[in-house]
Design a protein around this nucleic acid. Structure first.
Lengths: 153, 153
DNA sequence: GCACATTCAATTGCGAACAATTAAATGTGA
DNA sequence: TCACATTTAATTGTTCGCAATTGAATGTGC
């Protein structure tokens, strides 16, 4: 018999999944960012790395990874692409030869000015007030941190 | 001179980006789901496809794509993997030969019962009440829909 | 009926994301 | 000092995610 939609199935319904809400919102953001970042010659994850570097320069790969929750398997090739685009320079630390320090080039620093237009466009696309966005952001960050706490057992 | 942290830089600070909150929360969810879904032999996007199919079976690829905001470039290889795992069957529609209909196998249907344990574990990992989760979810979905509305111009 | 556009899935190529492994540098304890 | 563990990036292989293109099937306007 063709199973009827049952209350017992509610936990498995797509529209009840908070993870799917987050997952699909992340993709929606990505699609809004794409045309903006194309003008900067960046992908979205590359933009995140640049945000980190614009705050503080000359940091090891590991620090970037901890900030963005990414590992070297993702960052190493990404940083090589940023280097090929002349936005960063990768140099082994002399104090600790295991570390690779990432520094912005002049072009990398200069790109920050062009990037200032991005957050405005995103705010407009979100179609809500800054305070509302901040409130949602804080809730999502709190949720993320609780999830990350569980991962570390 | 070593630029001081300035108020003008606030819009570009990583911790002020709602997109990064969403992006990093999505990855956190993925990491929490991974061990649970390993037991089902599914990846997270494959799990989403199965959620769609458990609601309604025998649907064209396009319908799945509209539901999940994914296109054939993502779904075609993913569905072939689900077929290789004997969870779905792919057949060309006889009414419209352009369409490929995705149907669950007996194994695909059966997996639903094993999957019922997943949402409970996620709820526990989220460490907050169902009503709080529903509230955040609804806000994120509303934001996502506003973003998607902008993409379609 | 026929040229034309549209729809749908598949394909190709590139850039993430991550698990697992490797290799080199560094730290630690006996 | 020397064996051993730890730290750090890099590498390999698999799976997404998407843009762009292809090709077949269908729909349409004349």
């Amino acid at each position: 018999m063709p199973r009827k939609s049952s209350a017992a199935d509610a936990p498995l319904r797509l529209d009840n999944q908070i993870c799917f809400a987050v997952y699909s919102a992340a993709h929606a953001f990505n699609r809004v960012y794409k045309p903006l970042l194309d003008r900067l010659g960046l992908t979205y994850p590359q933009y995140l790395v640049m945000l980190v570097l614009w705050e503080r320069d000359d940091v090891p790969v590991k620090d970037i990874g901890e900030r963005l929750f990414l590992d070297s398997g993702t960052l190493t090739p990404l940083l090589k692409r940023l280097e090929a685009a002349h936005l960063v320079k990768r140099t082994r630390s002399s104090e600790d030869e295991r570390q690779v320090l990432i520094a912005l080039t002049a072009q990398g620093h200069a790109l920050k000015e062009k990037a200032r237009a991005v957050p405005q466009s995103i705010l407009a696309a979100s179609d809500c007030s800054v305070s509302e966005l901040v409130a949602i952001k804080d809730e999502i960050v709190a949720l993320r941190d609780r999830l990350n706490a569980v991962i570390g057992e």
